[in-house]
Design a protein around this nucleic acid. Structure first.
Lengths: 340, 340
DNA sequence: CTGAAAGCGCTTACAG
DNA sequence: CTGAAAGCGCTTACAG
């Protein structure tokens, strides 16, 4: 690989001149510039971005920490991030954490050593070590679909899980349901707690008492939604609708209902959360709460671009609204009764 | 951010000494080393990987070109790649091409300027410019789920599409089907041509004549599979089974059949290709041909690691075998007739 | 064991 | 407009 020196020698000019041609600096004669550019083509010269970054103290690289690249929820966000960042001339380094805390630490270490210009992160762990690492980074960071701990003065882009759930429950209520079961996410998850809070508050606001065995909490997976539905069916016989705190759980619930020949929405209404692509499949058509995933990714990237160009580490956070996507899994609870 | 110079000054030693402590070089007194390491901790020093790379002429970075990060087919391969590469201490830069030829060119340009140590690529376009770019790279490249043009002496990791299709067709034949329709991929795709060839050859080998209107070709999408099925239904009335050249098309076909109350597998058998996660959904359970996606990604990464450590640009290519995953969408064609 | 010096491939004031 | 020189933050022979 030829260097700037090689092409300077070949042309009998100084490296400064070559550099000026490369960066189209005004202080260079047009003819000289063209000669240089021609030689560059002929010798198949590529500038060394590493050397350039060393001087500029910028790597034109943004790190994107993703919990699981295989999960379409995150890949849609990633796409949004990529779109605006690559348009701005940055290279985005996707770091796939595979849900491993160790990988998260290594990624931040890498970001620091490779002098990344900014970071968009969706961390799963948030222990003291992690916080300390983020603190030390000295580069702009924005949290995406996660909230930073208060001690970290960093902006986030997330969705209003509370309001989203309220909307879904209001919808079920408007259909006439009163006996609504809840398949929720684990308590350690902020998202899970917010969605649960939305459920409880909305029910209370309407003066409806919660069934003592009407809630079940599980990790996010289809199999667990299936189990949860089975449990609720036994423990909450009067139930006419279920809110699943995410689509995986919702699809699992639907699966159990299909297997047990309980027709949806005639005998049971189901609502999910996330609007995963699979929920729009012909056999599923789940009514669900949509998060603007690509938009969130874009917004996070725009925020980061602003922070970088204005050289500040903080910024306003952004909370997106959700949208209730009504499909085929909800109906009034008395449809069946009146026809009998 | 402190540099090596700062910590040398603080300790009253030379930068060489600090460097040696950092890289645990043998030529340093244990005590000195510990002092340095301590100061490094205290000053929150992070080595600058850019400077290091400039000297080593290696960036410890591998580029991974992905057609569409949002497509689970590719993200599963990417995960395989990541796993072995990050274990080897490399940072993998995922480049999401969003199916854009321009992005592919920019990515290769980036790879060159940033001195990436190797590349794993799944390009969609392969015109002369692309070939020239790849040629000029001078770094190890392996093709993943794509074949390099003959002029490029580069290895690939792919699946035997031909044999995979033969297996699927043999299976339908063994069930007693003779009237098999084919929903294929566009002719410009190597993969598509191979799968079609597998179909035609297997039918011929069994002395079965192809129906003149028994084949339909489309881009890969559920909507197009739906359309394709509708077309075949009209043009090939005696058809008892369909082979869809990929799962998206297969699921679309299944959708059309469900909507038109043609029961699967009783009235129509369907086989897909790829084993996408959605095909295992309760309502789908599509019999399909599985590609070892994660394995392929891993293998590609291993190949690349070998090439890098042995400093060569070529290597043996690898063709993986597929596996027929039998689920619920195939049965003998006469099941229904005998019961009538 | 330790330090001074050269150099990786660039950019950028500073002279001219 | 052009070139010589310093420097970005490191590593690595080379002396001692």
């Amino acid at each position: 690989m030829p260097t700037i020196k090689d092409i300077a020698k070949k042309l009998g000019v100084s490296v400064s001149t070559v550099s000026r041609a490369l960066n189209n600096h005004p202080d260079i004669r047009e003819e000289t510039k063209e000669e240089v550019l021609e030689a560059i083509k002929k010798l198949n010269y590529t500038p060394n971005a590493l050397a350039r970054s060393l001087i500029h103290k910028r790597s034109y690289t943004i790190g994107l920490m993703i919990p699981d690249i295989t999960d379409q929820f995150f890949s849609a966000m990633a796409q949004g991030v990529e779109e605006v960042l690559s348009d701005s001339g940055y290279l985005v380094v996707y770091g796939n954490m595979s849900r491993s805390p160790k990988k998260e630490r290594i990624f931040l270490q890498n970001a620091s050593e490779r002098k990344m210009d900014g970071l968009i992160v969706t961390p799963d762990t948030m222990d003291d070590e992690m916080i300390a690492l983020l603190q030390r980074l000295e580069i702009p960071v924005v949290f995406l679909r996660r909230r930073p701990p208060a001690s970290l003065q960093m902006p986030f882009v997330d969705v209003d899980h509370y309001k989203g759930t309220c909307k879904a429950i209001e919808y079920l209520l408007s259909l006439g349901h009163k006996d609504i079961g809840f398949i929720g996410l684990p308590d350690y998850s902020f998202t899970g707690r917010e969605r649960y809070r939305g459920f409880v508050d909305t029910m209370n606001r309407h003066g409806i008492e919660l069934h003592p065995n009407g809630c079940v909490f599980d990790e996010r997976s289809i199999a667990l939604g299936y189990q949860g539905m089975a449990q609720l069916h036994v423990n909450y016989p009067g139930m006419t609708a279920v809110f699943a705190a995410n689509d995986l759980l919702g699809v699992g619930a639907l699966e159990w209902l299909a297997e047990n020949r309980i027709s949806v929405p005639e005998q049971m209404s189901v609502v999910g959360f996330d609007n995963l692509e699979m929920t729009n499949l012909h056999w599923i058509k789940l009514t669900t709460v949509a998060q603007p995933r690509t938009e969130m990714g874009k917004k996070a990237a725009e925020l980061l671009m602003e922070m970088i160009s204005e050289k500040r580490l903080a910024s306003e956070s952004i909370l997106f609204d959700t949208e209730l996507v009504i499909r085929n899994t909800c109906a009034s609870p008395n449809v069946l009764k009146t026809t009998i």
